[in-house]
Measured scan of single mutants.
Amino acid sequence: NQASVVANQLIPINTALTLVMMRSEVVTPVGIPAKDIPRLVSMQVNRAVPLGTTLMPDMVKGYA
């Protein structure tokens, strides 16, 4: 199973992502692939993302 990107903490709306905010985990449904973590750094979330939430492409500005 492919690992997805999961929030390692509460990420407030419009926050630029950093490595410490994200972890990889095998979850259902599948979200953004963990291999894309380096690409996500500095991108902003367009909503508040609670701890443990799988990041989906529509949550990150400029990803999709």
Rank of each mutant, 00 (worst) to 15 (best):
A34R: 05
L55G: 01
A34C: 05
D58I: 11
A34T: 09
R39W: 08
M43R: 08
K35W: 15
L51Y: 13
V49C: 04
N8M: 09
Q9H: 09
T15S: 10
A16G: 11
I11H: 01
L17S: 01
P38T: 12
T54Y: 02
I11V: 10
I32F: 03
L10G: 10
S42K: 10
N46Q: 11
E25K: 15
Q2F: 13
K61F: 13
D36W: 05
I11N: 00
A7P: 00
P12G: 07
T18M: 06
P33K: 04
P38Q: 10
V49G: 00
L55M: 13
P50I: 08
E25D: 08
R47D: 12
D36L: 07
V27P: 02
D58L: 09
I32K: 01
M59F: 13
I13V: 13
L10Q: 11
K35R: 09
M43N: 04
V6P: 01
M22W: 02
I37V: 07
P12Y: 10
L17E: 00
L40P: 01
N46T: 10
V45E: 01
A3R: 06
Q2H: 10
V5W: 01
I13P: 14
V27F: 02
V20K: 15
P38W: 10
M22Y: 02
A34S: 12
N1D: 14
N1Q: 11
P57Q: 15
M21K: 03
R47I: 14
L40Q: 00
D58Q: 10
L10I: 13
I11E: 00
M43G: 04
A16M: 12
A64M: 07
A16V: 06
D36E: 14
V30Y: 14
T53P: 00
P29R: 05
T53F: 12
T54Q: 03
E25V: 06
V5G: 02
G52Y: 06
A48Q: 14
I11T: 02
T15E: 05
V30G: 10
I32E: 00
K35Y: 15
V45I: 08
L40M: 08
G31V: 02
Y63P: 04
L55Q: 01
P33D: 15
R23P: 02
N1S: 15
T28R: 08
V6Y: 02
A64R: 03
K61L: 11
S24Y: 08
E25P: 00
P33Y: 06
V6G: 00
P50M: 07
M43P: 00
L19D: 11
P29F: 04
L40S: 00
P29G: 04
V49Q: 02
I37L: 09
N8Q: 11
Q2V: 13
G31T: 01
T15W: 05
M21W: 02
Q9Y: 11
V20Y: 13
R23K: 12
R47V: 12
G52I: 02
V41A: 04
P38D: 10
A34I: 06
M59S: 08
R39A: 13
S42C: 03
M21C: 03
I37R: 08
P57D: 06
P33A: 15
P12V: 07
G52A: 08
T54P: 07
L51M: 10
D36K: 05
P33N: 11
S4F: 02
I37W: 03
M59W: 10
N8C: 04
T54R: 04
N46L: 15
L55D: 00
Q44R: 07
N14K: 09
V6L: 05
M21H: 12
G62W: 05
P12I: 07
A7T: 14
I32D: 01
L17P: 02
P12E: 12
T54H: 02
K61H: 15
L55F: 08
P57G: 09
L19K: 12
V41L: 13
N8W: 05
A7Y: 02
P29A: 05
V41Q: 11
T54I: 10
D58C: 05
L19V: 12
K61M: 09
P57N: 15
V6D: 00
I13D: 13
V30Q: 14
V6S: 03
P29S: 05
A48E: 14
T18G: 05
M21F: 05
R23L: 07
L17C: 02
L10S: 14
T54N: 02
K61Y: 14
L19T: 06
I11S: 01
T28F: 15
V60W: 02
R23W: 03
M56L: 13
P38I: 06
K35P: 07
M59K: 02
N46D: 11
I13K: 08
E25H: 09
M56Q: 12
T53R: 10
L40R: 00
L10Y: 14
V6Q: 03
M22P: 00
A64T: 15
Y63F: 12
V41N: 05
V49Y: 02
L51G: 13
V27M: 07
S24F: 14
V49P: 02
I37A: 07
P33G: 05
G62F: 09
G52S: 07
L55P: 00
R23H: 06
L51E: 14
L40F: 02
I13L: 12
P38F: 10
I32L: 06
A16Q: 09
V49W: 02
A16S: 11
E25C: 04
R47Y: 08
N1I: 13
S42R: 08
V5H: 00
N1F: 11
V20Q: 11
V27R: 10
M59Q: 05
D36S: 09
L51V: 15
Q44E: 12
I11Q: 01
G52E: 05
